[in-house]
Design a protein around this nucleic acid. Structure first.
Lengths: 341, 341
DNA sequence: CCTCCGAGTCGAAGCGCTTCGACTGGGGTA
DNA sequence: TACCCCAGTCGAAGCGCTTCGACTCGGAGG
């Protein structure tokens, strides 16, 4: 391995001069700079990451904590992780991958051993045991999703309350008077995952505000569960003509179920999804949807983290506004609902 | 931050003694060991990762290079990544996440800066430009999938040739005489991805061997593409009664398509999938399938890497045997095919 | 003419750890 | 009794980099 001393010797300067050429932290004559840069290239020099981290107290590595749990939708997480890595690279950082099952202890481990400079934590629950740890850690962090108590924390998320509300508004505007939210598996609600809770809140509030019926039910991933849930729903509330689904993996089977139950989409039943655009577009008919901007969230998370690392200030809570795209799965409510509106 | 010197002072020993207690590389009296361990706990000492890496020439970090490309099935990759992280932790290593779009240069960067000790590279193509780089890197690596020239490389993969063959055998055993392989999107074949190619090879060879018709076609992910592909297939080969699908995201829509075309599964059409078990089990009917053992592959990859890091030898190529599970989507061929067998 | 200043460079002191060689003292061997 | 050996410990020398203070030299200011 070629070291900074080799480069210095080759260029006929001191090692510190090489360092300053590389970092730009002191002025260097054009002549010297050129000579050093030529030597760097000639020898194929790469600074040793550990030595650099030890001396500068900066590893240039961010930790990314991903959930590995049941009920999470994987492709969205992956988009997210990819965005984090890509953005981190843009700022000359790398990403260390941690799984949530290491728990709070895992965060302490990587932080206190100075393996990383900062952390991105995904899938934060309303009462997350990692939150107090994060608050005390000697380095910045950013949460995706947000806990009940976000004091002194930086959180970024899609505005799921608004997302839930937008769906209701869209359907209500079309004259639908009875709506249902088909949510995530009940385990997700039980562990008080913020996004699920908040979508529900937005849905219920908007239904109230619009004076329409808004019922909600969790839904597991198996076909039979979906069938059972929908049958039950339509039995209890036969007048439902608008469905909102926040549960990506069931979208395909749900369309089957509706077909099997003799409900055409959108003629007999309008359907809205909260999901990635490509998923919505792949269905038949294409689904009206509120997008989850995974890339944007990941990018924003890293940008905030870098700002904090550089001593800048960032807002405690950043809520990205949801975007609704109407496609072929929603239409005017049948038989004169508009008259009752 | 508390350093090894603090611990040494607290325990009344030399710093080197603390180091030896922690590493176990020299014998230490029980008394001293206990005292040091108490001090470590009392002070909450965590060795500084960079200092350790610098002194020992080992970062205890593995690089994981994941593909971010169209046509890859995401949940399988995620399972895989999770297995890599979990297994790495078992051996006291962490995982640095790289995306494939950094290319060969990215591998050189992390390797030559000593950021990582070893690399796991996923989704290797038959003629992958990263392969020559990997071969020259001053550290061990493991490939998932394998290139045309695997000389001096360590590769791990599911035996996709056998997987393709098993599917044919299973269907042929049931009396089916005309089979089709519904493969990945054509882009995947065009970039010469090993697993797709090899499944195809196994499928074709086995069909030959069994004396049955075996046609193959790529298939894109949109519903219309699936519909078009299957219609075309059944028009060209109306006697097909067995389908093998290696393309997870189309599995759901494919079942719709068959239904729409009036083919009942399995009565009119037997269907086999090469996919994760949970995907197969979620369908109606549940799908006979050959599993992709993502966890096992990830685990095996890290185990091999650790072995190499410790100077041990590992086989150049490890092919995991495929496991076929018959479920409700395959049955005896209709109208007397057995007589023609 | 002397002083002052800033641009440009160097040397040395760490950063926190591992590891090598050397030292000590007590037990076994001859 | 003299010797050797080994378990147990220490001190010091790095690992490769960053950064601080100090030095030099030429030009500007008085």
């Amino acid at each position: 391995m070629v070291t900074i001393a080799d480069v210095a010797r080759h260029a006929g300067v001191a090692a510190s001069t090489v360092s300053y050429v590389l970092s730009g932290k002191r002025s260097i004559s054009t002549d010297t700079r050129d000579r050093v840069q030529r030597s760097v290239r000639a020898l194929g020099y790469r600074p040793n990451a550990s030595a650099r981290a030890l001396a500068s107290q900066r590893s240039n590595v961010l930790a990314l904590v991903i959930p590995l749990r049941t009920g999470m939708h994987v492709p969205v997480m992956m988009q997210f992780a990819a965005a984090v890595v890509t953005t981190a690279r843009r700022f000359d950082h790398d990403v260390l991958l941690l799984t949530a099952d290491e728990g709070p202890e895992g965060l302490e481990r990587v932080a206190q051993s100075s393996l990383v400079d900062a952390l991105v934590v995904m899938d934060v629950e309303l009462h997350d045991e990692r939150v107090p740890v994060l608050r005390e850690l000697p380095m910045p962090s950013v949460l995706i999703g947000y806990p009940a108590d976000a004091d002194r924390l930086t959180c970024i998320d899609l505005d799921f309350v608004a997302a839930g509300a937008h769906c209701v508004d869209h359907l209500a505007d079309l004259g639908h008077r009875s709506l249902a939210l088909l949510g995530t598996p009940s385990a997700v609600y039980e562990r008080q995952t913020g996004f699920a809770q908040r979508t529900l809140t937005g849905f219920v509030e908007a239904a109230d505000r619009r004076g329409v019926l808004g019922v909600e039910t969790p839904c597991e991933h198996t076909f039979d569960a979906i069938l059972g849930t929908v049958e039950q729903l339509l039995r209890d509330h036969p007048d439902i003509t608008g469905l909102v689904v926040q549960n990506e993996p069931i979208i395909g089977p749900l369309l089957d179920v509706l077909r099997r139950l003799g409900r055409r989409v959108p003629d007999d039943m309008s359907l809205m999804a909260i999901c990635a655009d490509d998923v919505a577009e792949r269905q038949v008919p294409q689904l009206s949807s509120v997008t989850i901007p995974a890339e944007r969230i990941g990018e924003q998370a890293v940008e905030s983290l870098i700002t904090k690392l550089e001593g800048g200030g960032v807002p405690e809570l950043t809520l990205l506004p949801p975007k609704l795209t109407a496609r072929g799965s929603t239409c005017q409510a049948p038989h004169g609902d508009l008259t009752t509106a």
